[in-house]
């Protein structure tokens, strides 16, 4: 699915992302509040779902090559996080859904996990 379809599925608001970037196709997701857990994936997930709203969300995405980070539970997102997402070219979204509910909706829409590095 495209990132804009994903945003719709999660009733998410795009905090940073050009129309062009939102047209990117995404397939794999990692959902965790633990950044090390996301970095342990063998295949880079296209999208990260997380309850964390620190600068590390964007830095982890940049390091791992994740295209979009979705912050769940409607956590307030500081402007400097959006600023960093812009600098690093990471699509950033926010949804009021819980991590569980957001994951469930994306699974139902056909998104799958990225394999864990062993």
């Amino acid at each position: 699915m495209t990132l804009s379809a994903l945003a719709e599925a999660l009733s998410a608001k795009a905090l940073h992302g050009s129309e062009e970037e939102l047209q990117q196709e995404v397939v794999t997701v990692a959902a965790s509040d633990l950044m090390s857990d996301i970095l342990a994936r063998l295949g880079t997930p296209d999208v990260m779902l997380t309850g964390l709203a620190t600068l590390q969300v964007v830095r982890t995405s940049a390091v791992a090559g994740i295209k979009a980070a979705v912050i769940v539970r409607g956590k307030p997102v500081e402007e400097r996080l959006v600023e960093l997402a812009r600098e690093e070219d990471i699509v950033l979204m926010s949804t009021d859904l819980s991590l569980f509910e957001a994951s469930g909706r994306l699974y139902a829409a056909g998104m799958r996990s990225a394999a864990v590095r062993t």
Binding site: L39, Q56, R117
Partner: peptide, 16 residues
């Protein structure tokens, strides 16, 4: 609370 410190870091480094 910042998403680290779960005892995975050194493991991740070793795997990479």
């Amino acid at each position: 609370e910042l998403g680290f410190g779960a005892g995975m870091g050194l493991q991740n480094i070793k795997k990479c």
